[in-house]
């Protein structure tokens, strides 16, 4: 196990080096002049020239690459062209805000996805199965941006149950501000005993989290169902049934454990899906997280920020898959 973790860690470092190299040359080949972007609007040529020297863009590409990689070791990703702040600082500030959404969405998607999948498989062919099938088909078919808008329209505009957007009501931001301890607003408000803000923040999170978890939940439920049904067709289940083991044990103990391995893989993959979905959800719900930041970087071709975002997503992706691989090893001893 330790060896496996070490291998994964080396793999992660290698991936980050390859990724940062790729991203570096990729962003340098982007259309547009970075120095001009940095200064913004109506800049004079000499201003742009000064910015070019300031950013080191006048040096040859190889020198720039060396400097970039050198800085990266010290977690220095350069200055964002858009916010004019260090990218690393920006990321550290935004990551917790998004991860609050992502982790909730992941947890709910995994929990309900697996539950629905198991229920559908258990009642295979019944009305319950049909209903879940329709429901999950809809869940995987609805475009994320459309779902987010629908949620706003229905739950804010029509029912008025949940706030439209943002992270906390503006009046609370002054009366009961969130102290920045961990960056996770729910945790912070709880630690500080700021319950008013805690409930307000939780309230604001409901719709974005819903928008995020629906799609992955559908995918996980469908996969769980088919994986379980596949397992229940196997020889060893027939043999166990022939040796008089009750259907309940057969299904929930023997079958489920066998079926779980592909499900865990998909849960790991859906981390990437949810991260991608935050681009849209955070934009629509005006949530100041990493998705919003990434999207703004894409739209303004802020290449230093793009590099940072790409590296971050790569890291998260590898970590999530490693965690899922560890779980799969626990569940399924065949994986070596």
């Amino acid at each position: 196990m330790l060896l496996f973790l070490c291998k994964r860690f080396v793999g992660l470092i290698a991936l980050l080096i390859v990724l940062s190299t790729l991203v570096f040359f990729f962003t340098r080949s982007l259309p547009g002049d970075a120095a001009a972007l940095y200064i913004g609007g109506n800049a004079k040529p000499e201003q742009i020239e000064r910015a070019r020297i300031e950013l080191g863009l006048d040096k040859p590409l190889v020198v720039q690459y060396k400097r970039y990689m050198g800085r990266l070791i010290h977690a220095d990703m350069g200055i964002s062209l858009r916010t004019h702040r260090p990218v690393f600082k920006d990321l550290m500030e935004k990551i917790p805000m998004s991860f609050e959404l992502v982790l909730w969405a992941l947890f709910i998607a995994a929990f309900f996805g697996v539950s629905f999948g198991v229920i559908a498989a258990y009642f295979q062919g019944s009305m319950i199965d049909e209903t879940i099938k329709w429901f999950t088909s809809a869940a995987v078919s609805i475009p994320i941006f459309f779902l987010a808008l629908l949620l706003q329209l229905f739950f804010f505009n029509y029912l008025g149950w949940f706030p439209l957007q943002g992270r906390i009501d503006s009046f609370l931001e002054f009366s009961n501000p969130i102290q920045n301890i961990t960056g996770f607003s729910m945790v912070d408000t709880l630690i500080a005993g700021n319950f008013k803000a805690f409930f307000n923040v939780s309230w604001h999170m409901v719709l974005p989290v819903t928008a995020l978890f629906v799609g992955p939940m559908g995918i996980i439920a469908r996969l769980t169902r088919s994986s379980l049904l596949d397992v229940m067709d196997q020889d060893y289940i027939l043999a166990a049934r022939a040796s008089g083991i009750s259907e309940g044990v057969l299904f929930f103990y023997y079958g489920l454990r066998n079926a779980l391995s592909p499900v865990l893989t998909v849960i790991g993959l859906s981390v990437a899906l949810i991260l991608l979905a935050t681009f849209y959800v955070e934009m629509i719900f005006n949530w100041p997280g990493i998705g919003y930041y990434s999207l703004a970087a894409i739209m303004s071709l802020d290449y230093t920020a793009l590099m940072g975002v790409t590296l971050m997503i790569g890291t998260v992706y590898v970590i999530a898959n490693t965690i899922m691989d560890i779980l799969r090893r626990i569940v399924d001893p065949r994986i070596k």
Partner: peptide, 19 residues
């Protein structure tokens, strides 16, 4: 999207078609 709360049909119609 900017008019979603008042002129909802502009987003909802193509969204529904897609869905």
């Amino acid at each position: 999207a900017p008019n979603i709360l008042s002129e909802w049909w502009i987003s909802i119609v193509p969204g529904c078609a897609m869905f």
